[in-house]
Simulated scan of single mutants.
Amino acid sequence: MFTIDPLALPAGAAAGAGIFLLFLSLYGMRPRPAQPRRHLVKALTTRTAIAAVAAVLVLVVTGWPVMAVGAVLLVFAWRGLSGGAAEERAAMRRLEGLAAWTESLRDTIAGAAGLEQAIPSSIRAAAPMLRPHLRALVDRLHTRMALPDALALFADELDDPSADLVVAALILNSRLRGPGLRDVLGALAVSAREELDMRRRVEAERRSTRRSVQIVVITALAFAGLLVVFNPSYVSEYHSWLGQAVLVVVAGLFGAGFAWMRRLARFDKPARLLSGTGKPAQQLVETGGGHG
């Protein structure tokens, strides 16, 4: 019966950590939107428990520390194999809510209300994901913050390229007080609807790529598991130190392939028109004023 060397588990953990750091240096980490701490802790606790169970099962069945560490990394990276599908769906919901809010703001302004009065009135018709940001915007206005600065902070909180177009129009109008804001908001709402339709078509096409990525991963893991269970003599060479070193290389190649497939199915967020707090609004006003 195969016995596990006491140094095998630390060596496997070090090898797995090396693979993880290699991928981190090659692909980096994408910035993610801030999440409530309670949800983040809950997600990490759940993943940690699943990863621990998976590592123990793999270690008991195979006796390979490298594969146990690989199982842990796979559990934590599994959501990433979907290529940002959740982020893309959230972006589409935010875009749909933004289009509806822009239409509501346009209709409110059409009733001869000023921009400072129209924004608080539009909260009731806004999507749930926009209401907290709109309430924060109204609170800043109540504290006598200048409307352009409050709108710039509002754009930073939304962190969405489509929202920047709407906020940029509002910032220019709040400074220059020119006519035609209602027509501009109507055109931006139509543009947001068209972009939403385009994103839905692209997401439907990418869905098949993401499904292919998951099928390849599951097939590779299932094939390796069947070999270990039903043909242990075929993989007996991996019980040695040299076999574990080879497994590190094999796992690294599989990980590189998975990362490449994930990159093909990933949702790349467009660059924002506005970025930072305060400065973009002022630069936009100066640019708009220069053209006027």
Rank of each mutant, 00 (worst) to 15 (best):
T46D: 08
S104R: 08
M67R: 02
L188D: 01
D160F: 00
T219Q: 10
I171W: 07
L115R: 05
A245G: 13
L73R: 08
L274S: 02
E237V: 12
P232M: 12
H291R: 14
G180I: 05
A271H: 08
V202N: 10
V246W: 08
L9D: 00
G111I: 05
A163M: 07
S82G: 15
R38I: 10
I123G: 02
F23I: 12
A189E: 09
L134I: 07
L9I: 15
A222Y: 00
R200Y: 05
L153F: 08
A271R: 09
D139E: 14
P10V: 03
R200C: 11
S275R: 12
S25W: 11
I123F: 02
L273F: 10
L242N: 07
G63R: 00
D164N: 03
L130F: 04
G84P: 07
L81S: 03
E237T: 09
R89P: 05
S82L: 10
R182T: 15
G252I: 03
L196P: 03
R177Y: 08
G80C: 04
A281L: 00
A99C: 05
V72N: 02
P36C: 00
F230L: 05
V75W: 03
E103G: 07
A281D: 01
S191E: 15
A15V: 00
A14K: 04
P65Q: 01
S82W: 15
L73P: 01
A14Y: 04
V166C: 02
D5E: 14
Q35S: 11
R272P: 04
S121I: 10
A13V: 15
L284C: 09
L147S: 01
G243M: 04
I123E: 13
S104M: 00
A49F: 04
V60E: 06
E116V: 14
R201W: 10
L57D: 01
D139G: 06
D268I: 04
V75S: 09
V72T: 00
H239Y: 06
S191F: 12
A220V: 15
A11F: 01
V213E: 03
L273H: 02
W64V: 00
L247H: 05
L73E: 05
W260T: 15
P161K: 02
Y27M: 07
S208V: 14
H142L: 14
R144F: 13
S240A: 03
P33E: 12
L273E: 06
R211Y: 08
E157D: 11
L188R: 09
R207T: 07
G16L: 06
H142F: 07
T62R: 03
A169T: 03
S212F: 13
E88N: 09
E286F: 13
H291D: 12
R272L: 06
A51I: 09
A43G: 13
P6F: 05
S208D: 11
L185H: 08
R175T: 14
M261N: 01
V72P: 02
G257D: 10
R30N: 09
L57A: 13
G83M: 04
M67A: 13
E87T: 03
A118V: 07
V66N: 09
P65R: 06
M198D: 13
A265S: 12
V246R: 14
G12D: 09
R207K: 13
P161C: 05
E157W: 07
R193F: 11
L188H: 08
L44W: 14
E203K: 08
L98S: 00
S121R: 08
